[in-house]
Simulated scan of single mutants.
Amino acid sequence: MLSAFAVLGLLDIIWGLNAVTSSFQTLLDNITSGFIFLFSILGLFGLIRKNSFLVYLSLLSPITILVSTIQLLFTHVKTFSYTFSSASETLILALSVICIYTSYKTISHSQIPQNTVTDYEQKAESEYTVELIDVVKIYKVGPIEVPALNGVNLKVKKGEFVAIMGPSGSGKSTLLNLIGALDRPTSGKVIIDGVDISTLSDDELAKLRNKKIGFVFQAYNLINRSTVLRNVELPALIGGTAKKERVKKAIHLLKTLGLGDTIYRKPKTLSGGQQQRVAIARAVINDPDIILADEPTGNLDSKSGREVMMYLRKMNEELGTTVIVVTHDREIAEMTDRIIHIKDGKIIGEEVLRRNKI
């Protein structure tokens, strides 16, 4: 289709040059239209930023050419003067129709940024789901710089179940935020399935989070005015999944997590452990590659905490989901495959608990 765009633009310019025998205005109109169209091609094929208004000229320009061509052809037909010029106008007419359709399809599909989700899935060849390379994060509070992470290097394999442990202020939540694309590093690289997310735009990061990452928070973050079912299906709704499909999947997940009798209840009527299991179902509804859990057992008693970890383990083993848990509880951390210790913004060591996963 690129050749159709190029031929149309070229013919339109030639047509404009030939129009010098007609009128200066016709010459100017056609040359301008031709160059605008060729310039628009740059946007359609990635040489101009996809969100640029120039992309939309690619739809306006062939429409303009189409209308002017029909008018000229009509004049030739009325005067029975179908010449070589008329033949070229007919070709331009056909190419205009093709390009209008192609421009429309290109613009309508540009809602999914290139080099993000689609290419992202194609690039998922690395054995590591998460890689951090020399990551530094510095927060600025007025003139004061507060270092949170200082040269962190980390690799997490696909299907691994990892705990990050450290005292308050050690940088473990900052580390989780960077892995979850909720924040950007000051320097260094954060790589998810082979893609450096540091280079993505805010819109691209939002799509990546919705598609690739599930979050479980200490405070559950459920919507109490909605039903349990509605809470679970919400990420799939945002992701564009059809209602019938997302409802069916949400019910299946809730039953898998032992919540089949709570589907139409409100979250506030459930126990803390049940609410956290609802949050887990919500986190995996879009089949993410990674679940990030920030102190998921922090508001629970020890029995409920172990149950939540058991269900996270179940998701890890049955779905192959990589799970990264931030915790200060040694007993909870020992339920994972590997414990990563962090202190003062640096990883100071790790413990391998299950070697068959590493």
Score class of each variant (00 low, 15 high):
2 L>D: 12
2 L>I: 09
3 S>F: 11
8 L>P: 02
9 G>N: 00
11 L>I: 01
16 G>C: 11
18 N>H: 05
19 A>M: 03
19 A>T: 01
20 V>P: 14
21 T>Q: 14
27 L>E: 04
28 L>G: 08
30 N>D: 09
32 T>Q: 10
35 F>R: 06
41 I>H: 05
42 L>Y: 08
42 L>F: 12
43 G>V: 01
46 G>N: 06
46 G>I: 06
47 L>R: 11
47 L>K: 12
51 N>K: 14
51 N>Y: 05
52 S>G: 02
53 F>M: 15
55 V>K: 08
56 Y>M: 07
57 L>S: 07
58 S>E: 04
58 S>R: 10
59 L>R: 11
60 L>R: 03
61 S>M: 08
66 L>P: 07
66 L>A: 01
69 T>W: 08
71 Q>L: 13
75 T>A: 13
80 F>W: 11
80 F>A: 01
87 A>Q: 15
90 T>R: 07
90 T>N: 04
94 A>H: 06
96 S>V: 11
100 I>L: 03
106 T>F: 01
106 T>H: 06
112 I>R: 11
115 N>V: 07
116 T>E: 15
120 Y>D: 08
122 Q>L: 15
122 Q>G: 14
125 E>S: 15
126 S>L: 12
129 T>G: 03
132 L>R: 00
135 V>T: 09
138 I>L: 10
141 V>N: 15
147 P>V: 10
149 L>H: 06
154 L>G: 05
154 L>I: 07
155 K>Q: 06
155 K>T: 08
157 K>Q: 11
158 K>L: 04
159 G>R: 06
162 V>S: 02
163 A>H: 05
163 A>R: 03
164 I>A: 02
164 I>V: 03
165 M>N: 00
168 S>Q: 00
169 G>W: 00
170 S>L: 02
171 G>L: 01
179 I>K: 05
182 L>H: 12
183 D>E: 00
183 D>F: 00
186 T>A: 03
187 S>E: 03
188 G>K: 13
192 I>M: 11
193 D>M: 01
196 D>C: 12
199 T>G: 00
199 T>A: 05
200 L>T: 03
203 D>G: 15
204 E>T: 08
205 L>T: 00
205 L>C: 07
209 R>T: 04
209 R>L: 05
209 R>D: 07
212 K>V: 04
222 L>E: 08
222 L>K: 09
223 I>Y: 11
224 N>G: 06
225 R>N: 15
225 R>T: 13
229 L>K: 09
233 E>F: 13
237 L>C: 02
248 K>D: 13
254 L>S: 10
255 K>G: 11
256 T>R: 14
257 L>T: 06
259 L>E: 01
260 G>V: 13
265 R>D: 12
267 P>E: 15
270 L>M: 09
270 L>W: 14
270 L>N: 09
271 S>W: 11
272 G>Q: 08
275 Q>L: 06
276 Q>G: 01
277 R>L: 03
278 V>D: 04
280 I>L: 11
280 I>T: 01
283 A>E: 09
289 D>I: 15
290 I>V: 13
293 A>S: 02
294 D>I: 03
311 Y>R: 13
316 N>H: 14
316 N>P: 14
316 N>R: 10
324 I>F: 13
325 V>H: 03
326 V>Y: 09
328 H>Y: 05
329 D>H: 08
333 A>S: 09
335 M>E: 00
338 R>A: 03
338 R>Q: 14
342 I>W: 00
342 I>F: 00
347 I>W: 00
347 I>H: 03
348 I>F: 02
351 E>V: 14
352 V>T: 11
356 N>W: 12
